[in-house]
Every structure is written in C-alpha cells, then in structure tokens.
Nucleic acid binder design. Sequence first.
DNA 1: TGTTTGCAGAAACGTTGTGA
DNA 2: TCACAACGTTTCTGCAAACA
Length: 305
Amino acid sequence: MNLLSFRYFLEVSRHLNFSKASEKLRISQPGLSQQITALENELGVKLLNRTTRKVTLTEEGEYLYKKLSPLFENIERTVNELTEKKVVPQTTVKIAAVPSAASLYLPQMLTMLHKEFPDVEFYLQETTSTQAIELINRQKSHIAYIRTPKDTATLKRQGFNFIELERYPLQLIVAKSHPAAHQKTVDLKELQHEKFIHYDRQQSPALYDLLEQACLVAGFRPKTFCVGPEILTIASLVANGLGVTLIPQDMATLLDSSKVSAVNLTQQTLHSSISIIWRNSDYVPLITQTILRLVNREQAPSATG
DNA sequence: TGTTTGCAGAAACGTTGTGA
DNA sequence: TCACAACGTTTCTGCAAACA
C-alpha cells in the first residue's frame, strides 16, 4: 500500500472520470485503472462504481474521499509553500545588531513581531557591523542591523540585500569639563589639536571612515589616542578627558548625558545610518519576510535592495 | 444502426531501484 | 555489473452505453 494509490484515487474521485484524472496525473489511463483496482483489492473494499459511461463513488469511496481529501490538500499546500513560495516555518529568529540599533530599533520591531508570532523565540547578538555581516554570510543570523558602510555597492555585489533606515548627523562627544561642552555648535576645525578616540578600521569601518572623512573635510588628520573601544568605553574615556570623538546622533542618545556632552557640528555634511541586511537566498523564511515588510512599511521612502 | 465515448484487460517493452 | 521486481507506458482489443 502506498500513498500514490490514494493520491490517484482522490484525483479520480474529483473528476469522476478516469481519462481526465489520468491526464491530470500525467499517467496513462490503463495504468490509473490498474492502480485503482489494485488499491481496491488491497483494501478489500470497492471504492468506485464503474459503468461504461459513468464513474461514481461507493459509500466506502465517499467516506475515504472525505477523510483523505483534506489531508492531501494539506500536504500539497505545504509542498507548495516550500517549493514555490519558498516559505520556511521558523521557531527561532536570529538577529545580529550593532549596539545603537539594538537599543533604537529592536524593541519596537520585536513588539510587532511578537504580536504576529507569539511562539517564536528571538536570539539577539550585539556585535560590530563587520561581525554582523559575517554572521549573515555564515547563515548564523537571519538578518542584521549594521552601520551602513560607505561602499554599499560591494554589499550588493556580494549578494546582500539591504534597507537603509533613518540617517543621523555626526555629533562631537566631549567631557562635561571641555570648553566646547556648553556650545550650541562647534566647528570641527577648532579641534584639530585634540586627541580622538577612534574606531577600529576592521570592525567598525563605517564609523572609521566617517571620522576620518569629517576631519579631512575640516582640513586635518585626527590625532588618535585610542582605537576600537565599545560605545560605553568611549563614553568613559571621553568623560575622563582622555580625548574627544565623533559619533552619529543615534549613538549619542545612548550615552550618559551627565558625564559627556553631544555637540552639533557647524558643517553637517556627513551622516550615518543603520541598515538592515539579509542574504539573497532561495528560501526566505516567513518571519524574515515579515520583518522586511514591517521595515518597508515604516521606511518606505528609503527602501533599497 | 453505425459511430462515439469511456473503462478494462493483455502483451510487450522501458525505467528505476535494490540486492547479490 | 547483472538479475530481478515493481511500476509505468504504449498499443491493441473488447465491451457497453449514449447519441445522431
């Protein structure tokens, strides 16, 4: 006894016509007839009444059809979801995010997702942009919130899709005791003799490039005191007067304003943003599709990919 | 009444998977 | 690699009901 015979029986029951059913099943009519007969013999029950002009279901056939039909429809729907819509059910969603994105965007996103998928667990990884990209590459994360790199074309070439979220201007971060701390705006040129808390070129290339470029536009190369610390360490180093730094406004909101000041720059030509990235794949899980749909709804004007 | 239509059965053959 | 079984196809024939 095999499932195929039942599949054949259902198709004949639907059409009540062997020729049409065999056409639909892409097998020969005699073959189909043989299969149904064999199934009836195996079950010891007559399923179809055949006359030379008409096929009808017997009482047993009717019963079997009613019982099996929804089950096979479910199988077909599942296979269809898997093969055509490329939808894969998911019970755990892995999201990598840089710290500022984890604080700014994830709470709202997770609230919305939890409403749609109450049984799904979320696994969050707070990391650098470079590591987040690597996690997506190795399929260890489904999506990632990264600091948008300068060269987005390379990301696209590598098969990543991305949606850029809101852009934020750069701000100067100084200690409360710093002369610039109480100014409304500051010209970056005035800080050319300051020591900077810089970013790691490998781990945070977007922020590294932004700081370098901002100083270059202001006419100097930044003197580096320290490279590569985490955002809380940056705040601590700046608060203790060990240097100044430039960070995007979204990151600045996470710093303790009682210890450091965020000052706007007079020339706000450079901006930074967070982007959501995900890998091009044959299978985009349903929940990942939902995340992208929600992000697109919120960020429709700047959607890229 | 001849033709058409639809199902069943048989025979020959091809394809595929399995086990020795 | 080969033999074998299972399953399917093609082709043909037979039967019977519906129809013009």
